[in-house]
Simulated assay, not measured.
Amino acid sequence: MHTKPPTPTRLLPQQTRVIHASAGMRLRVVSGRVWLTQPHVAQDLFLGPGSVVDLLQDWIVVGADAEPAGTRPELYSEYVLTPLVAPAPGWFQRLRKSRIANRVRSGVSVIW
């Protein structure tokens, strides 16, 4: 199976977004410079092209720096988010079957 690479997310200077990554996401900076503010982390991270960070919580703010690093300012900053672990094919069907089997054994009615 051939998978298409993820499309980068573009941010204009000083633009921000909120990332929910409690399931685990990897952020890779493609161009420009971005900063991350994470809950319960005292210091922000400033990341340039090629930088990678693994995210494991919700409510992370990612923003484009006002003036991206480099001699020629970029028009935007870009980053790519990918899951830390890709689900195995058929994971939902296996989960559903195991839950049904557990409920049948326990005498609980199954509604899906």
Rank of each mutant, 00 (worst) to 15 (best):
M1D: 08
M1P: 04
M1L: 13
H2T: 06
H2W: 09
T3Y: 15
K4S: 15
P5Q: 02
P6N: 03
P6F: 02
T7Q: 14
T7K: 13
T7W: 03
T9N: 02
T9P: 00
T9F: 11
R10S: 14
L12C: 08
P13N: 01
P13C: 04
P13D: 06
Q15G: 08
R17H: 04
V18F: 01
I19G: 02
H20G: 07
H20W: 05
H20N: 14
A21C: 02
A21P: 01
S22I: 02
A23C: 00
M25K: 01
R26N: 00
R26H: 01
R26T: 00
L27Q: 04
L27K: 04
L27A: 07
L27D: 00
R28D: 07
V30A: 12
V30S: 08
S31T: 12
S31L: 05
S31K: 11
S31E: 11
S31W: 02
R33L: 14
V34R: 08
W35L: 09
T37D: 12
P39A: 05
P39K: 11
P39H: 09
H40Q: 12
V41N: 07
A42P: 05
D44G: 02
L45N: 04
L45H: 11
L47T: 04
G48W: 02
G48M: 10
G48F: 03
G48A: 15
P49A: 15
G50F: 08
G50V: 05
G50K: 07
V52I: 13
V52M: 07
V52T: 15
V52L: 05
V53S: 12
V53M: 13
V53I: 15
V53N: 10
D54A: 05
D54V: 01
D54Y: 03
L55G: 03
L55K: 02
L55W: 01
L55V: 01
L56T: 07
D58I: 04
D58Y: 03
I60C: 03
V61W: 07
V61T: 15
V61F: 03
V62Q: 06
G63K: 02
A64Q: 04
D65P: 04
A66L: 14
E67F: 06
A69R: 11
A69E: 11
G70F: 04
G70M: 11
G70Q: 13
R72T: 15
R72L: 11
P73I: 12
E74D: 12
Y76N: 07
S77K: 10
S77N: 07
S77L: 06
Y79P: 03
T82E: 04
T82V: 00
P83R: 01
L84S: 02
V85A: 10
A86G: 04
A86E: 06
A86H: 05
P87W: 09
P87H: 11
A88G: 01
P89S: 15
P89C: 09
G90W: 08
G90T: 08
W91Q: 14
W91S: 14
W91H: 14
W91D: 15
Q93R: 09
Q93K: 11
R94H: 13
L95S: 15
L95Q: 14
R96D: 09
R96M: 09
R96V: 00
R99P: 00
I100E: 15
I100P: 01
A101R: 15
N102M: 05
R103G: 08
V104E: 14
V104Q: 15
R105D: 14
R105W: 07
S106H: 12
S109T: 11
S109I: 09
S109V: 08
V110E: 14
V110C: 12
